[in-house]
């Protein structure tokens, strides 16, 4: 049973007297890779956390398809900007999520091996995760999320702290995850990356969704002034 589409209706987040997310209406459907673009502080990470259920909205409603919220929770994964590595081996990091998802032990091994192979981490499987390079750590975060075979994967600026080769590796893995049938929802402030990855663009500015378009349309003829300014590299406040 699919948990998509995800519907957001008038979703807002207020904190400390500030409006961080302002009345967003959005439908996230299965299929194309969605990229959430916007300058720093636009609310991109917050929107992802909202969708993933890590924080709750101050106002408005998020609804996953199907009524079972526990089921929806189990069908999504998230990879953070700074990879969070459990203080155990690479293999144990992947096993951890599988155990929580109550994957039978007999299947766990096979899934771990596959995830390691798909992310090129087979040779470091027994190493403590925290001694890996940042690029390898981010690949492990992807492997850990992918092993759970999520229907939706949220990625919060997954390459923000990586060098070009690390970025390339992560983008290839994201492509593979997408090809294997997982919906990708990713934030970035990197325009070049957005052009490479996006099949569907959502533009956020000051906590508002100002535009949603196909990449062809968004990058050639953005509708909103904020998006035009962002694409031209003019500073946005």
């Amino acid at each position: 049973m699919s948990v998509l589409p995800l519907l957001l209706k008038g979703v807002s987040v207020h904190a400390g007297g500030q409006i961080l997310i302002d009345g967003i209406d959005l439908e996230i459907e299965a299929g194309p890779k969605t990229v959430i673009l916007g300058p720093n502080g636009a609310g991109k990470s917050l929107l992802l956390r909202l969708c993933h259920g890590l924080i709750g909205p101050t106002a408005g409603k998020l609804t996953w398809s199907g009524s079972d919220s526990t089921h929806a929770r189990r069908r999504q994964g998230m990879v953070f900007q700074k990879p969070v590595m459990l203080r155990r081996s690479v293999r144990a990091n992947i096993a951890y999520g599988l155990k929580l998802h109550e994957i039978p032990t007999a299947h766990r091994q096979e899934r771990i091996e596959r995830a390691l192979a798909q992310t090129g981490l087979g040779h470091v499987a027994e190493r403590p995760a925290r001694v890996l390079s940042v690029g390898e750590q981010q690949r492990l975060a992807l492997a850990r999320a992918w092993a759970l075979q999520p229907e939706v994967l949220f990625l919060d600026e997954p390459t923000a702290s990586l060098d070009p080769s690390g970025t390339g590796a992560v983008e290839r893995i994201i492509e593979d995850i997408h090809a294997a049938g997982t919906k990708i929802v990713m934030t970035t402030h990197d325009l070049a990356q957005a052009r490479r990855v996006a099949e569907d663009v959502i533009f956020l500015h000051n906590g508002r969704l100002t535009e949603r378009a196909s990449p062809a349309k968004f990058f050639s003829a953005p509708e909103s002034e904020a998006a035009r300014a962002f694409l031209d590299g003019r500073l946005l406040w």
Partner: peptide, 24 residues
């Protein structure tokens, strides 16, 4: 450091307690 990641992986609070004791 762990909270959001554990939550994302589906850990309940009692899982988190055991994880913190082991990882710490």
């Amino acid at each position: 450091e762990y909270r959001e990641q554990l939550c994302s992986l589906g850990a309940q609070p009692h899982h988190a307690v055991l994880t913190l004791l082991w990882d710490g």
